[in-house]
Nucleic acid binder design. Structure first.
Lengths: 118, 118
DNA sequence: CTTTCATATCAACGTCTCTTGAGATATAAA
DNA sequence: TTTATATCTCAAGAGACGTTGATATGAAAG
């Protein structure tokens, strides 16, 4: 990820509705969610939701595919990890004071749980 | 770092001049740099620079202290690591597809990394 | 105390962003 | 085909953002 892509991604994530959409889609897994379901979760009108989804897709943080009459959106995991890696490498040049605590915080949370079998 | 702080930080970093200022200050170390030196590096007028520095300081990504007749700005390492940690924890809920590659990319760069805690 | 240097503040302007509401498009069902 | 469902697109308006130029503040030097 280069600087321009990172700026787009940061701009996309710096908006409450969009940050929440990404969070929702990350937890939703690779199958993603239909736009309507996302809109319901966000309490957003169709055009407002479409605006933000388009914005996120443009920034590369989300991707879409048609599924019947709905359109399913899913998180672009690679772009998200690319953004975080960009921030860490960018910040880490000479100063692990940023990256070390960040990685430590990650290790401290219960994240690396592969898949809670339903 | 909570959602509101993260949104502020993401918004602050989503602007080219400000992202570059942060990058510069991170490499500058805890001593930071005088505003004039930053402005010279950015090719920015005094008021434009002041606008962005104030924005960054408001977002908590930078701090300032007077030093003679200049004002030195330095990176807020804790806020930066907090932001990255926020993104990782926020993204990692259920999907290490984001965090694992990000941490791996960090390990691959020349920065000293902490050993992952159990 | 006046001058000079470093930086901040303010007002004004153009531009971008977000929201809303109306209408268009695509898919599926009757 | 007609109708209903799901989503997108467009235009307009309010507000936020970023730049500029002029001015103010604050610290040091003469």
């Amino acid at each position: 990820m280069d600087e321009t892509q990172a700026l787009d991604a940061l701009g996309a994530l710096s908006q409450e509705t969009r940050l929440r959409i990404v969070r929702l889609l990350v937890t939703a897994g690779p199958e993603g969610m239909a736009a309507g379901v996302i809109g319901e979760a966000m309490g957003a009108t169709s055009s407002r939701l479409s605006f933000h989804l388009t914005h996120l897709e443009h920034a590369g943080l989300v991707q879409s595919r048609r599924d019947g009459r709905s359109i399913r959106y899913s998180a672009a995991y690679e772009a998200l990890s690319g953004l975080i890696a960009f921030l860490m490498r960018d910040c880490c040049q000479g100063h692990p004071d940023v990256c070390t605590p960040a990685v430590a915080a990650l290790s401290a949370c219960a994240c690396p749980t592969p898949e809670p079998a339903a």
